[in-house]
């Protein structure tokens, strides 16, 4: 059985710059890393592998050829196999087309019981690809997983983080789990892992390798149109009203009224 991890290579900064002409990320001069949330997904996949005999961890990334570095890092941490999805035809994919493409690759790999993703990517922040993959594969999803309580090859019982606390959810497998940083502490690569990763030849699959409908991939398969990207202006400092409670309450009511009535 296979445990799949979906990872994305992202710029090593939270302060990304956007090209105003094309509305895309400026990647020049910025180091690339594995999306930090995906590190928790890799770690959890490796831990589940240790719990389920005979499991193999396969890590997949979709991106430009240099994303192979992210996959090698995953191999050096102990993942068994890696696949890169890279094709000019995939360029311009939104989260819908990306999750379709990933789902087709997962089908090709087959024998999957679990699919791990980070809760979201640090560059796009959409948190849509994991749920998208589960939809395309027509299997259950649990998002924001912070703990796996029980797991066997047929079912899992997990804790899903919410703003107030957590839900306990049981799901049959296969399923997609997206994880939050509370779930574990990712390991460092090992020396033997690094050496194995250095020698590893990572297969690159294009559109022709994963039997996909060409209308559903790349820019053509992407219903999303990015009209504008901007950084919202920093929030301005609030006002503190001081004085007697009665007067302050009146003043506050007046202010609210002004805002509401414009």
């Amino acid at each position: 059985m296979k445990i799949i991890v979906l990872i994305k290579q992202v710029p090593e900064t939270t302060d990304v710059r956007i090209d105003p002409e094309t509305n895309t990320l400026i990647r020049e001069g910025v180091d690339s890393i594995i999306n930090p949330f995906d590190m928790y997904a890799i770690e959890e996949a490796l831990r589940v592998k240790e719990r389920l005999e005979g499991a193999k961890v396969v890590v997949i990334s979709m991106g430009p050829p240099q994303a192979v570095d992210a996959l090698k890092e995953a191999l050096s941490m102990g993942c068994d196999e890696a696949v890169l999805l890279s094709d000019r035809k995939f360029a311009g994919s939104d989260t819908w087309a990306t999750s379709y493409t990933l789902a087709q690759a997962i089908k090709k790999i087959g024998d999957y019981r679990l699919i791990f993703c980070g809760k979201q990517a640090s560059d796009g922040d959409t948190a849509q690809v994991g749920p998208g993959v589960s939809t395309h594969l027509d299997i259950p999803q649990v998002t924001y997983v912070k703990h796996i309580e029980q797991i066997d090859t047929h079912a899992a019982k997990v804790e899903r983080m919410t703003e107030e606390g957590y839900d306990i959810i049981e799901t049959p497998l296969p399923a997609v789990l997206t994880v939050v940083k509370e779930i574990n502490e990712p390991r460092l690569p090992s020396l033997k892992g690094k050496m194995r990763a250095k020698k590893a030849e990572i297969p690159v699959w294009g559109a022709g390798d994963i039997s996909c409908d060409e209308d559903k991939i790349g820019l053509d398969g992407s219903p999303t149109r990015v009209v504008k990207i901007f950084t919202p202006p920093p929030r301005e400092g609030g006002r503190i009203l001081t004085g007697e409670p009665d007067e302050v309450a009146k003043e506050l009511a007046g202010l609210i009224k002004d805002i509401v009535t414009g």
């Binding site: 460092l188 690569p189 020396l191 690094k194 050496m195 250095k198």
Partner: peptide, 17 residues
């Protein structure tokens, strides 16, 4: 390359752990 790998990994362990 192997020695450089040892150096990089050990530095990372030192820095992060």
């Amino acid at each position: 390359e192997e020695q450089q790998m040892i150096k990089d990994l050990c530095h990372r362990i030192a820095e992060e752990k």
